[in-house]
Design a protein around this nucleic acid. Sequence first.
DNA 1: AAGTAGTTTAAACAAGCGTTTAAAATAACG
DNA 2: CGTTATTTTAAACGCTTGTTTAAACTACTT
Lengths: 209, 209
Amino acid sequence: MSTKNKILDAAETLFANKGFNGTSLREITGQADVNLAAVNYHFGSKKELIKAVMSRYMNELSPRLESALRQVCEIESPSLINVFSAFIEPLLSLNKFKNNGTSNFLQLLGRGYTDSQGFLRWFLTTQYPGVIDNFVLAVQKAYPELSAEEMFWRLHFTMGTVVFTMSSSDALIDIAKSDFDRDLQISDVIRNVIPYVAAGVGAPMPLRN
Amino acid sequence: MSTKNKILDAAETLFANKGFNGTSLREITGQADVNLAAVNYHFGSKKELIKAVMSRYMNELSPRLESALRQVCEIESPSLINVFSAFIEPLLSLNKFKNNGTSNFLQLLGRGYTDSQGFLRWFLTTQYPGVIDNFVLAVQKAYPELSAEEMFWRLHFTMGTVVFTMSSSDALIDIAKSDFDRDLQISDVIRNVIPYVAAGVGAPMPLRN
DNA sequence: AAGTAGTTTAAACAAGCGTTTAAAATAACG
DNA sequence: CGTTATTTTAAACGCTTGTTTAAACTACTT
């Protein structure tokens, strides 16, 4: 395996578990078993490494996601469950792409929104706008009465639900094991969260004052 | 104002905006206009300072919250909207306690769940179990059909929604201003999130396979 | 007024950080 | 084979981190 990929693999796991700020280049190169200077040689800087880690996933995910959402839009009258279920297959496909891929990616997404003053949010929204656009279109078709402003709020809440849940999914799975004696996978977490966010986005429009 | 409080005030704002890892003691003591060593003299360590910042809020919040939730349980048949609305007054009361108190506290809560490997989660659940217990009781009364396992999931999702929303509430308020020309307060965010989480928690029980 | 306890101060500490350098090792190509 | 290019390496860079030290200063008590 190439040095570049060894770095990407080690960085991905460490970033997901300890955040971007919380992971040093020495930890990464130590786990990847490569020289410290290799990061700056191959990626230029730590910030560029973070982008590279995210890009590797987004380039895999975004075409699948866009096409799945487009398919939902072709349904006669799609439900919000249809919309959110469109995420399942593309997200779980990241597990074939790499071990713990789904979990790692979603955790990284969560980190990106709280660590590093939102530069990752900027990166994602400017580099992969097609995903967001198709998502909004699908929700609009499933719930046309939802105003633009209400949509803005609820999609943000949904982002929060998913991102937070995933960034602590390891703890969640542990608790589920000890409290309910159930062995859960990341796929179970995804399937559990869909009715929740679908109901949240589908809540009746509140009366404005 | 005492040195101790000057440190707490400066630390609170910086922690909320930049996270615990992302804020140095020199930034804190600089903004507080206090000597660097004062933190270790008065609090012992950075970790203890973080606890002190959180405790100051929790000691103000938890009795109000517990009593509000107990009141909801006394309603004949409370709705989930009732349950979550019980949070409004106690949370907004933090604004009288300190400028931007509500926003700062909720952002800190969000930081605590992702920064610092969850030691803050441990701190909160062990030090303030009464809040969680009363919350669960209220939800149980409002939605008795919800199984313990489903409750576990949905409360976690709710925590995620709130915590994530609040930790990025500054960005949210900025976007709302530029996209919808609406000047929002933290209270608007709270009022918007309630129908969402109430609908999410109130979603019908899914069929198990 | 002297002495003591509490507080503040400047300076230094060791350790860790991301990044750079220049030499050594490896690979690729005419 | 010999000569470029590319990659890897060890060492050091300057800087920031949390924490500690010991002296200076303040306030209160006897």
